[in-house]
Each structure stands twice: as structure tokens, then as C-alpha cells.
Design a protein around this nucleic acid. Sequence first.
DNA 1: CTGTTAGCGCATTCAC
DNA 2: GTGAATGCGCTAACAG
Lengths: 366, 366
Amino acid sequence: MAKNPQKIRIKDIAEMAGVSAGTVDRVLHGRGKVSPAALKAVEEVLNRVNYNPNIYLSSISIRKRIKIVFVTPHTQGSQYWQQIHEGFSKALNEYSVVDLTSEVYTYDQYDLYNCRTTYSKVLEAKPDAVVIGPTFKDETIRLTQTLDEEHIPYAYVDSMVEGTNPMAFYSAKQDSCGYLIAKLIRQTTPADSEYALFQAMRVGDESANNTIQRKIGFMEFFHQNRLGDKVHRLNFSPLDKAYNDKALADFFAAHPNVKGAAVLSSRGSIITDSLKRIGINHIKTICLDPTSDNVAAMMDGHLDFLVGQRPELQGFLAVETLLKNIICGGHPAVENYMPLDIITRENIDFYKEYVVQNSAVGGGGM
Amino acid sequence: MAKNPQKIRIKDIAEMAGVSAGTVDRVLHGRGKVSPAALKAVEEVLNRVNYNPNIYLSSISIRKRIKIVFVTPHTQGSQYWQQIHEGFSKALNEYSVVDLTSEVYTYDQYDLYNCRTTYSKVLEAKPDAVVIGPTFKDETIRLTQTLDEEHIPYAYVDSMVEGTNPMAFYSAKQDSCGYLIAKLIRQTTPADSEYALFQAMRVGDESANNTIQRKIGFMEFFHQNRLGDKVHRLNFSPLDKAYNDKALADFFAAHPNVKGAAVLSSRGSIITDSLKRIGINHIKTICLDPTSDNVAAMMDGHLDFLVGQRPELQGFLAVETLLKNIICGGHPAVENYMPLDIITRENIDFYKEYVVQNSAVGGGGM
DNA sequence: CTGTTAGCGCATTCAC
DNA sequence: GTGAATGCGCTAACAG
């Protein structure tokens, strides 16, 4: 029945506009050297028809080598950032028809000066495009100002820095994430429960701003439900097990009605491991990200929910967007929020494997 | 730092194997007419290197017009099947470089004879590839036998028919789905709750087999937890509101301890609408698929959870797999299970928009 | 059987 | 400023 709508080629546009293919190409890529009359004719046709340049076809004939630079916090010890980098790799692999070069720089997210040094290396590398996993706002604003001046496109993963002009950003809505966690923990505990909010004293794998946003969303839920006073906070150590065992034992002795616990980072398994050691069961626990520790804790029955933010997809889409823009032009959507996946023991297998998924077809965000 | 691993081209393989590009192409596509010696040399190189043919590049030089035929239950009134068909469209659009023709046939999933007639039209259409949304097992086996004989590749969406040899199938694990629903409904209700399992007397939008599988998984959870006697069943009408209002009122009068309700199809909003009319609140309700009715009921606060099965992604991947196989050859994974997305009011926005996602990069299934 | 070659859609380059 | 010619990776048709 349906015949596939005839693919529009550059040659077709040229014919319709009464010019040659070369001229259409010059218009499409804004390279100038086109007479006003020809420009107008071509633009008119472009407005009428729906021309979809194909990045794979474009890239075979492009002569330029494209250098893409990645700059994020260290991936060492952070599966979240490792997964974002896996998304980078998969995109580079997917678009290997393009003559691509890449360089990876990572910085210590607790060391402003290290970040500054690393950012300067990014500029020295003379990139054609940059993917940024930001932490320090002012440093990032400074970096992107230079990138803006040199017309080097950049995209963010994990979070967006206000006051900059990225080509696009890919992140989860952190306040929604916190709100969702609150809702889940509330829904899965008895009506008269109280709740624990455990915070790592020094979280190794995310920008502080994200955690703050999550906490805002988390508390918003409890305040909306007039349960603000049912939430008890406790700091824990990401490293010191003995300290945690003691602190948690004391905490639950002092708050016997606590039935649900939230960790607004990926460090939930540290809590559940500790609870297991000190023999406290039946506390519903929830945190972020299916890291291998969290997956193990979940299979073990000690973590009840995880919320995933598709780090790999973020990385993949950031690279894809930059490449498509450089090669084919066009203006992609700037704001792109990832789905917040609710993961339990029953559906975790799918999310372990099925991390990145087709964007070529997906809309995006809210 | 890292330079993109040099893309392997046919020319490179030819050089390494000491033959010409034409010979490599013949080996890759199994077109024969290659001497054993040359075959061996090429295969040896292929095993050593990682050659990724590019479908877009291949398809421009292919001269053949490819006809792909879709055969599924009627989409009228079923958003689930509509979304699968949207996945078809997106794939056709994504691969519009290929000279594609498509034909769509739908059948009445309650009418075996209609299905048989429709299947015969599929064969008459002389397709190069077929995507099947199956319902009747024996009819489908008969259809696929003919397809097998004529070496026409086919793929399933929604469910797989045992005893056939598809190129691939894309579906959700229905028993896992039922189990997950049971777990969710149990987790979000008090310990002493009882449960309702509502079944549409005549479900308009899915193969009966799927519902049976879901029920098996659902009951498995309750039996494992020795709660089999806490589940009470009731049939409802997909059309007759007055009947449902009466039946539900009677049901909840007879079972006052029921705090959670599951509908193992997409018809959950029919139940919540009825409950709203008869003034019964605070029953946790869960069903499948973010159809517009279900989304509305969820935003309204009456549906608590939805489980999504990515119908659009199923449709997209089925088409993509067939095209890649026809154009580039190769043997894709046959079994592909979709993630089961847990959807609540807090994350529904992402799933409404972000339906299909990059498969080129995703592994698949469990 | 095999190597060579034309041509696919596209971006670039080089004569006009 | 413009059109025609070239080359990209790949397939298919052709000549040996």
C-alpha cells in the first residue's frame, strides 16, 4: 500500500531550485559565495520539502578529520562516569565512518585547581567539539566562553551549567529524581512509618549540585504531605565500615519507627551492607544507579529500588548530537532529560544490558 | 589520546587476504563463485578483524527495491498496536535511504478466518521481509512455513510463536511482567491486604496467550509468598460501565480487605473510572501500557503504576533487524526481550515522549 | 572463478 | 558565483 515517501536528495533540490548541486551544498552549509537570487531559490525549496541529510553518507565524502574532546570527573571508582564514557565509546564506534580522533581528560571533582588545569588542556588540544561533565560552575563558564569565541560546539552530560550556551545537554531531572525516590519509599512503607535520609560525607561520584537538587525534590514530597518531621538525617562514611555500623545501630535505636531509607546518591549498598552486618532487616532502601554493588545488594534482597538515569545514553547522545551538528548542521533540541528508570529485582536484568537505546528515533525529554 | 580505531573497509580486507574487493563482497554476502582457497583466506581475515558494514553505504549501491510487509492485529482502538506501528514508521523513515516499499495488513484477532485470509494476502504481496504480530499459533506456523520455503525472512513483535524460525523476535517477558505487577501491588499495600485480579471479558488489544503468561507470573508471586488465597478474581466488561459499577461495588462489599487491584492488560483505566464513579478510593491499582486513558487516570491520581513494554521500540527493532539482514547479511540475536518500565506519576513524562531509543548501541534482553 | 569498473548520494575542488 | 568533475565505501554487472 504505502510507498515510502521518495527520499529527497541534494540533486532533487538543485533541480527544483534551478541551480546545481554544488550551490545547494553551499547554501546548506552556509559557506557563502552564493548569489542572493540563488540563495533565495534554494531556501524556498528547502522550506517546501523535507530534506534529511544522512550523516553516514555525508561523512564518507567529508575530508576533514574531526577531533572530539571529553572532559569529565575521573572515572576511576565511579561506575556512573564509567558508563557515561561507555556511551562516548559506543558513539565513536557507531560513527566510525567519520574520520574521528578523540581525547579524554578527567579531573578531580574535589579540586578546583585540577579542574582548571584540565580545562586548559582541553583548549590546548584544539578540539572540533567538546563534551563536558561539569562540576565547578565558574570554571566551566570560563571554559565555555572561550569555546563560544572560537565557535567550538560543546555539549553537557550529567548536568547543565546555567549561563552557558551548549549545543545540547543530557541529564536527569535531579529534583524529579529526589521526589520520585521519596514517593517510592513512602508508598512501600506503612502509613505510620518514619524515614531515614542517609548522606555520604564525601560522595565520590557526583557533582554536589545534583545531590542538592535531589534533596530539594525529596523534601518537597514530604513537606507536601506534611511529613517533613518524619525524616531523620544521618551522615555516613563511604569508606569506614565500623563507623557506619555503629552510627546506624545508634540511629535505629533512637528511631525505631524508621521503616524506609533513602540514599540520594549511588552509595546505597554501603548502607545495606552495614544493615546486614548489624542484623537490621526489613528497612526498605532505595538509592540511585545500578552499579555492580547496588545490583548485588538488590539481588541479595537488601536494596528494594534503584533509580537509573541512563548515563550511557547521555554520553552517547551528547557525542551523536555534536557529530550530527558538525557534519550535517541543523539545530538540535538543547534540553534533553533522560527517563528516570525505576529498577527492582524483577526488571533489573533488562536495565543491566539494555542501557543505550535508539535515539535516532526517539524524541526527548519532557 | 585515543585515536579512533581505524575503520576497516572492504578494500582493507581484500588487501590483507590478497584478493580483490569483489571477492570479499561475494564472501560477505555468501553469493558463492569463490574458490575454496580465496574463501578461506578471506574468512581468516574476517575472523581476525572486526568488520562492521555500514547499512547506509550498502543501501545506496544496492539496486533492489525492498518490499516489507507488516501483518498485525487491527490497530483501530489499540494504542499498543498503534505504537508498534509507529515504530515501523520510524524505522522506515530512518532507513529511507533504502529504496523501500511497505504494505500493511491487519486482521481481526478474534477471527481465525479473517487472520487466514489476511495471511494469504501477505504471501500474494511477494514481500522481501515480513513483520508479524501473531495471534493464532497454527495459522502463523503455516504462514511461516511458506516464508521459510521461499527464504523470506520474518520477525515477530509482541510475542513469539514456538516452532517457527524467525530472524528475530521482540517482545516483553510476559510472565516477568505479571510477576513484577504482583510484586509492586504487594509492596505498596499493607501486610494484611487482600488483592483483586480484574480481567476483561474480552480484551480488545492483545493476544490471549500474553494475558495467560502474565497471569502465570502474577499468581507465581502470590503462591511463592503463600498468599494465593488472598487473590480474588472478577471479570469486567470493556464496554458496559453500568455493569462494571455494579460488579465492582458488589465485589468490594464482599471483599473489604482488598487494598490492591491488578489488571493484566492495558484496560486499567476502565476499573479506576468505575471506582471513581462508585466512590471507592485508596485502592492501589496497576495495569499495563501508558495508553492515553491510562495516562489520564494516572495523572488524575487513580492509577498508581503502569508497566510499559516499549511497543514502539519493538516495532522499530523488528524492521531494523530485517533490513540490516537483507542488506548487510549477518545473524542477529533471535531472542530480544524489552525492558519492563515501571511508570508512575513522577516519571511518566519521560516515557510518554521517550519511547524508542537507540538500538544500534544497545545490547538486548536478559 | 576473479579482478575491474560503473554508479549510488554526498561534499569538495577546480575550471569557467 | 557557478556547474562539472572527483572521490568516499560499497554493490553489481561485466570482461576475462
